[in-house]
Design a protein around this nucleic acid. Structure first.
Lengths: 160, 160
DNA sequence: CGGCGGGATGATACCAGGTCTCATCCGCCG
DNA sequence: CGGCGGATGAGACCTGGTATCATCCCGCCG
């Protein structure tokens, strides 16, 4: 375990990214940054809104979306399509191209370096005669924490 | 080029899949099958609805969605998340696990065999300590037809 | 200090994709 | 022919997201 990056660090990192790009770090945006940073996994705009309202009555839905958009454009946050078709956002590292591996149980998400994938994608494109501009890989599964928890408290029917 | 599979073949294949799974091949579903098969690329439910209405006045939105759901559950059709965040559907081969490479210009889509990806995904999971249950790879680019068309009629600025 | 301008904000209307309900309908089987 | 379950259409509804618009706030300039 190496939880060297705290939520607080993340909050600051987000705010710095905002400022570096020339955007105002307004109270609302700071709030969103804090909310985003304090989730270990993915979250929806609606969740953010609700949590935001708990600490600060007046924050508009539109503001949340605008902030999220902004953060997404800075690649501090990325939009995810869950297998269910629902949309969620995750905090992530803006510095390198990567993908997400998300736990379907707890929602925790880890960044996955592109690695060999780039090569593979390249080859697929060449074979199909496409010029590939973008790719997206999304991985869903169960993290080790959830797996061991499930092993300890097995749901009905599973230990058959 | 090997356009050995016609829209008609696809229509029949879809209908057969329906029947094999024990669902009625009702007129509406046949219509949807035909509409789906006659698009080379991805399409949205709204498009289908509109095209459907052109040849058969009464088909409900819900019916389209229901048919699409059904086809998706038979894996004859798959739901795609475009880079824009919009949802689309594509006709595809139910028999093997694969991914989609879609042309952002014309919407044409080709199936891509999983190939090495499975191994890669496996390794990622092992390294992260996740049990990976599902993955999704989506590739976006430009097909050779659109590329050559673009080369012939270059847009402003591109031939710089 | 006062005024100004642009960006940020909140409310709200709106839109699209999708789901749910419900009454009707229709085709298939007996 | 009668009944039943599945399919259907209309339309309400929900959710995620966007557009509009008036207001507001802040920094800056005079």
């Amino acid at each position: 375990m190496r939880p060297s990056i705290t939520a607080d660090d993340s909050t600051k990192r987000i705010i710095r990214a905002l400022e570096r790009a020339g955007y105002q770090a307004t109270p609302n945006r700071r709030l969103v940054a804090r909310l985003v940073a304090s989730t270990g996994g993915h979250f929806t705009a609606a969740e953010l809104l609700e949590r935001g309202r708990q600490e600060r009555v007046n924050i508009g839905r539109a503001t949340i979306f605008r902030a999220l958009d902004l953060l997404a454009s800075l690649r501090v946050v990325e939009r995810l399509d869950l297998p269910t078709g629902a949309h969620a956002y995750v905090l992530c590292d803006p510095d390198e191209h990567h993908h997400h591996l998300v736990c379907s149980t707890c929602g925790h998400s880890v960044d996955v370096a592109d690695g060999e994938l780039a090569r593979l994608v390249d080859e697929i494109g060449r074979r199909a005669g496409y010029r590939i501009d973008a790719h997206r890989l999304e991985l869903f599964g169960m993290c080790s924490a959830c797996a061991s928890e499930q092993a300890a408290v097995p749901g009905p029917g599973s230990p058959a």
